[in-house]
Amino acid sequence: MNDTILNDILKVQDVTAVILVGGDGRPMASSVTGSDFDLQAVEGGHWSAMSHTFNGFKEAEFVYENHRIFIKKAPAGLLVVVMGRFAPIAMVRLKCDVALARLAAPKSRFKGLTGLFRK
């Protein structure tokens, strides 16, 4: 489910990675395209320290020589989008807002059954 939501952001031109980081600093989901960077490093990266550092910000954007990284506060963690310098950043922000709204929406479809099975 989360991967599907993230894939929607990944479809935006020049976006290379979308990662949802939980409040504990562990990646909850990720969608990555291309092989410009070390996927293992991304998955096993020190997101805990990152989460701690960026705690308190609603949005952060980092402009690098080759890439741009957009971070948005998620309901429980951070949404991190890695893109090229020429990605349509306004579109990325919009997609992120939509994605976060979908992530925050109550998952009522299987809630009753799940509760029933747990019992």
């Binding site: 290379t16 990675a17 410009d36 960077f37 070390d38 490093a41 991304v42 990266g45 020190h46 320290a49 990152m50 550092t53 960026f54 308190g56 910000f57 609603k58 949005e59 952060a60 954007e61 980092f62 402009v63 690098y64 020589e65 080759n66 890439h67 741009r68 990284i69 890695v82």
Partner: peptide, 27 residues
């Protein structure tokens, strides 16, 4: 400077190159 350092490390994960600028918004 510590936040900038974290941003540099983050950029290093993605081979993003040298950090040029950051934008921060806390609302």
């Amino acid at each position: 400077n510590p936040l900038i350092e974290q941003a540099r490390r983050l950029g290093a994960f993605f081979a993003a190159g040298q950090l040029r600028a950051c934008f921060l918004q806390d609302g």
